[in-house]
Amino acid sequence: MTVDVLVQAGSAQRGGPAPVSMIERMTLILDAFDGASPVRTLIDVAEHTGLPRSSVHRIIDQMVRLRWLAHVPGGYRLGTRALELGGLAVEHNEIRDVVSPLLHEVCQRTGMVGHLGVLDGPEVLYLDKAVGRSCDSIPTRLGGRMPAHCTAVGKALLATLEPSIVELAFRERLPQLTPRTIGHRAELHRELDRVRSHQGVAVDREESVAGVVCVAVPIRGRAPGAVAALSLSGRLGGVRAPGTSSLARVLVEVADEAARAVFPRYARWQ
């Protein structure tokens, strides 16, 4: 029998769909390391997940090499990579708790859609979204992701990084979401230079969603870079909004207030 057939057979005995993808199997294995059982043997993990022991052994070996798990006396435990990501999740939650009231207030005041986002590799992860009064909907969501190179939030964050980091993070050809999306890495570098020359204010001119414009500014930390970025978005021809310069001034004030509020909590993660 093949591994997939064995997995399907074990799943059938449990009465659920077979976890056929590697991500599903890794997730099942990570879920086995709950607070009550921080250390598990290979047999424990196989029994807990319902996966074949041979598959569990092979996957755990890979997860140890990638630092998702660590080999310890008596079995395995969560590795440093899982713990690092857990720390980042706490950090993001604290940033959102502090900044969210400010973001929602400015959206009610301007009537626009607001986002709080952080960089996750070459993408933006949205930690929060707020919608102003009578504002048209924009196809983004809390916990959603967008390519950083085509969003105002992403460009505001990328502009705080060294150009060499951006060079390594992006391929020469960039995915295009609209006809206005930046398509080449060199063009992205020029755009980030413009953002830096405008005190960190970034603009999305229908680059991520057709008919939507957006302005963003970074929330700067004590370390180089930024801890997050705030943006205000609106549809062309929708709610009449202030010009980008007016929005930028509003966002800079909010970002400064957010930074003052975040630092007492954020400082310990530096």
Rank of each mutant, 00 (worst) to 15 (best):
residue 179 P to G: 08
residue 236 L to P: 13
residue 167 E to A: 09
residue 149 H to I: 01
residue 127 L to T: 05
residue 205 R to N: 11
residue 184 H to M: 12
residue 187 E to A: 13
residue 229 A to N: 02
residue 148 A to W: 08
residue 228 A to I: 05
residue 124 V to F: 09
residue 168 L to G: 14
residue 237 G to L: 11
residue 141 R to I: 00
residue 158 L to W: 07
residue 187 E to W: 00
residue 193 D to I: 06
residue 221 G to Y: 00
residue 179 P to E: 10
residue 131 V to Q: 14
residue 164 S to Q: 13
residue 224 P to Y: 00
residue 178 T to Q: 03
residue 221 G to F: 00
residue 204 D to T: 00
residue 161 L to K: 08
residue 126 Y to H: 10
residue 185 R to Y: 01
residue 194 R to D: 12
residue 167 E to H: 09
residue 166 V to G: 11
residue 185 R to C: 03
residue 219 I to L: 02
residue 184 H to P: 07
residue 177 L to V: 01
residue 169 A to S: 12
residue 213 V to S: 14
residue 222 R to A: 04
residue 169 A to R: 15
residue 233 S to I: 06
residue 174 L to D: 03
residue 174 L to H: 03
residue 188 L to M: 03
residue 172 E to N: 05
residue 212 V to D: 01
residue 125 L to G: 08
residue 205 R to S: 08
residue 131 V to T: 13
residue 211 G to A: 12
residue 177 L to A: 11
residue 148 A to R: 07
residue 213 V to P: 01
residue 189 H to D: 10
residue 186 A to I: 06
residue 160 T to Q: 14
residue 202 A to D: 08
residue 192 L to Q: 05
residue 146 M to A: 14
residue 166 V to H: 10
residue 204 D to P: 01
residue 213 V to R: 15
residue 194 R to S: 11
residue 210 A to C: 07
residue 237 G to E: 14
residue 231 S to D: 09
residue 129 K to A: 13
residue 137 S to D: 15
residue 145 R to D: 05
residue 171 R to S: 15
residue 146 M to H: 13
residue 168 L to Y: 11
residue 223 A to C: 04
residue 161 L to N: 06
residue 232 L to E: 10
residue 228 A to F: 10
residue 223 A to S: 10
residue 191 E to I: 00
residue 170 F to G: 05
residue 203 V to W: 09
residue 184 H to T: 13
